Simulated scan of single mutants.
Amino acid sequence: MINGSESGPAPASSGNPSASGAVLDLLGLLAYAELGAFFRLADDAELAPSLADKGELAGLAATEYAHYKLLRDRLEELGADPQAAMEPFVEPLESWHTRTTPQSWLESLVKVYVGDGIAGDFYRQVAELADARTRELVSGVLSETERAEFIAAKVREAVADDPKLAGRLALWARRLVGEALSQAQLVATQRPDLAAMLVSEGADSEVGDLAAVSRMFARLTDSHTARIQAMGLTT
């Protein structure tokens, strides 16, 4: 669910070693993703079948907005314009969401859990090669325990009531993963600073080391099976 244009990173104040192009790209991408998650979860709350579910999703939406503000504030602290940092990712992210429009409330929950989950795995792996402050911030805003438990429980409950849903939702989850990985590969290759960060620990740190990037994406699929099992879906 991630991508970016080929425009350069948002401007940052000179003399601040934390304000690298890769860090600004990562924070800008994640900030817009969190802002988008807030709006989508708020919409999902309106479609929820019970008041309890509406309240849970509204709370999750509020958490996403709080995460967005942390990222926005960090961009400002680094001397960057948050809007400029997010702008390269607006059209691609919205395009991904258009291509993966859910057809039901359950599909929307699976999208949040699987699509946002694998995107979060990508952000975390990139952040592992960033400075300590960025790693700590990204780790904090990507905590998904509360959201994962709520969504997994709701999907398991629905599948228990109607077992035929399992296969259809599993197919939907696989589609989401494929789309998310494809978009992640694009951002890794189209945003040179991020691509350089991804391969910086290898023997060959040239931008465009697609082999290293591909190995990183292969690792992203490891947690997908666990998410599918947590929701009680077929593999």
Results as ranks from 00 to 15, higher is better:
residue 3 N to W: 04
residue 7 S to G: 15
residue 12 A to E: 10
residue 16 N to F: 03
residue 25 D to L: 12
residue 27 L to F: 06
residue 28 G to P: 06
residue 31 A to R: 06
residue 31 A to W: 03
residue 32 Y to T: 04
residue 33 A to C: 04
residue 50 S to L: 07
residue 55 G to E: 12
residue 58 A to D: 01
residue 60 L to D: 00
residue 60 L to M: 13
residue 60 L to C: 05
residue 61 A to D: 06
residue 64 E to R: 15
residue 67 H to L: 04
residue 74 R to C: 07
residue 81 D to T: 10
residue 86 M to V: 11
residue 87 E to N: 13
residue 92 P to F: 02
residue 93 L to P: 02
residue 96 W to P: 07
residue 110 V to P: 07
residue 110 V to H: 08
residue 116 D to Y: 06
residue 120 G to Y: 12
residue 120 G to E: 11
residue 123 Y to D: 03
residue 126 V to R: 09
residue 134 T to N: 08
residue 135 R to S: 06
residue 139 S to M: 10
residue 141 V to Q: 08
residue 143 S to W: 08
residue 145 T to S: 13
residue 147 R to Y: 00
residue 147 R to H: 04
residue 150 F to L: 05
residue 152 A to G: 07
residue 160 A to T: 14
residue 170 A to I: 01
residue 172 W to K: 03
residue 173 A to H: 04
residue 180 A to T: 15
residue 180 A to I: 00
residue 183 Q to Y: 07
residue 190 Q to K: 14
residue 196 A to R: 10
residue 197 M to N: 13
residue 204 D to C: 07
residue 207 V to P: 08
residue 207 V to H: 15
residue 209 D to Y: 04
residue 217 F to T: 15
residue 217 F to P: 08
residue 220 L to E: 03
residue 225 T to W: 04
residue 228 I to W: 02
residue 229 Q to G: 13
